[in-house]
């Protein structure tokens, strides 16, 4: 009647046994519900809307390829796509490199207690609104703002830095740097210390320990950090429009433009699906690489 691996020995133990069987089931149950609610249904809706049409500014269920044809026929689509993709990937790489020394220090130099405090400080910016943080960058970057005033005081030209890639990068970093710091620190802190000691005892130099022991061991976590920085920057709209401005038109800006201009939700859905597809491919490839076995 019961599984032969775990036979119920007495009737008195049956209840705890049943409980032991249902306990994991209780934990598993919400997962499909969440996946359905927050992933499958919205995605399905997005796919459906991409085949709908807009009649007199009203979204109308339909089965037309018009939105797909329109978006895929845009001559600037792929230029905008690669611009978006390239800029976010560049941001993700630079953010990861910038975060690494700090994560290394927190993982290997700081005591566990200090590490907690430092990580807490790194997350602190999350307690203010992202929009407010982006707006405050404008004060620093604009013409006659903090940075340009300092540059002028030292005899420089002090032009505005807004609407440059630097400004857009700052926005991406504001969003992604804390996440990357946390992921990298956890990854590095979990590297097996005995491996490091062994390498040191066998006479490996610090450089060799870093590149041949620590980095390979922490690779999954570090790659995940890079991936998250990319995901956040790629879908980012606020700094793209308030810091990058007109110079860097990205796909999220295109999505809002399509909705604003004549409520073209189906076309916006097509662009969103393109973004989701490219994100999934990127995430898949990255994760495969992160967890691949040593060849």
């Amino acid at each position: 009647m019961n599984s032969p691996a775990l036979p119920a020995r007495t009737s008195g133990r049956r209840l705890p046994f049943l409980f032991r069987r249902t306990w994991p089931a209780l934990w598993i149950l919400p997962m499909p519900v969440w996946l359905l609610l927050f992933f499958a249904v919205p995605l399905g809706l997005l796919v459906a809307i991409s085949f709908w049409s807009v009649v007199n500014y009203r979204l109308t269920p339909d089965a037309t390829l018009a939105a797909w044809r329109h978006v895929l026929g845009l001559d600037f689509l792929w230029a905008s796509f690669w611009r978006s993709y390239g800029l976010s990937m560049a941001s993700a790489v630079v953010i990861s490199l910038l975060a690494f020394p700090a994560s290394y220090a927190m993982a290997f130099v700081a005591a566990p207690r200090q590490r907690l405090i430092l990580l807490g400080l790194a997350i602190a910016p999350f307690f203010t609104s992202y929009l407010v943080r982006i707006y405050s960058w404008q004060v620093f970057l604009t013409e006659g703002g903090v940075i340009s005033s300092i540059v002028q005081a030292f005899g420089g030209k002090g032009d505005s830095l807004l609407n440059t890639y630097f400004a857009l990068f700052l926005g991406h970093a504001t969003l992604a740097l804390p996440v990357v710091l946390i992921l990298q620190t956890i990854a590095l802190a979990n590297v097996d210390r005995t491996g490091i000691s062994a390498a040191a005892n066998l006479g490996a130099r610090p450089r060799a320990i870093l590149f041949r022991v620590i980095l390979p061991a922490a690779r999954p976590g570090l790659t995940l950090g890079l991936l998250f920085a990319f995901l956040l920057s790629y879908a980012e709209f606020v700094s793209a429009s308030y810091l990058g401005g007109g110079a860097f038109q990205t796909l999220p800006i295109l999505v809002t433009d399509l909705v604003r201009a004549g409520q073209q939700w189906p076309r916006a859905a097509v662009v969103s699906l393109l973004m989701i597809a490219s994100l999934l491919v990127t995430a898949f490839v990255t994760v495969l690489w992160a967890y691949r076995e040593k060849g």
Binding site: T142, S160, L162, N163
Partner: peptide, 19 residues
């Protein structure tokens, strides 16, 4: 020649600062 595309608040600050 274009520096950026702005909303209401963006235009106010860009024109004021000389951006």
């Amino acid at each position: 020649q274009v520096r950026g595309f702005y909303d209401y608040g963006g235009m106010l600050s860009a024109l004021r600062s000389g951006e």
